[in-house]
């Protein structure tokens, strides 16, 4: 079991944990964290896949991909958190029936 294979397996494990977390949790913050875990898992697999060049050197392309992936994941998480904050702000502001009425109308 070479080292890279271990890295790949942990990546996949992280992925499964993340997906489970996303699917089972209802609270928004937990879902956002779960998605980040999935991201981390995928990036780990990407890095693990990079160890292949015959001359022993590390193949740079997956690393570039991981960097970009991290940038994308961070920006998406930022947007998600902004929405979560807006939802939280709305919830406080209209603790009365309006929120429920909104819910009903959306149905």
């Amino acid at each position: 079991m070479t080292l890279t294979l271990w890295y790949a397996l942990t990546g996949v494990a992280l992925l499964v944990v993340g997906v489970y977390g996303l699917v089972s949790r209802v609270h928004v913050l937990r879902q956002i964290m779960a998605v980040n875990i999935v991201g981390a898992g995928v990036f780990l697999v990407l890095v693990a896949g990079a160890h292949r060049r015959p001359s022993g050197a590390i193949d740079p392309v997956p690393h570039a991909m991981v960097l970009t992936g991290i940038v994308v994941a961070v920006s998406a998480t930022a947007v998600a958190l902004a929405f979560a904050r807006r939802l939280r702000a709305d919830a406080d502001e209209r603790t009365d029936g309006a929120a429920r009425e909104d819910e009903a109308r959306a149905g």
């Binding site: 928004v28 998600a80 929405f83 979560a84 807006r86 939802l87 709305d90 919830a91 209209r94 929120a99 909104d102 819910e103 109308r105 959306a106």
Partner: peptide, 10 residues
């Protein structure tokens, strides 16, 4: 900007 839209967007 309605609450429902933001929830759906999320």
């Amino acid at each position: 900007a309605t609450r429902v839209a933001v929830a759906a967007a999320l």
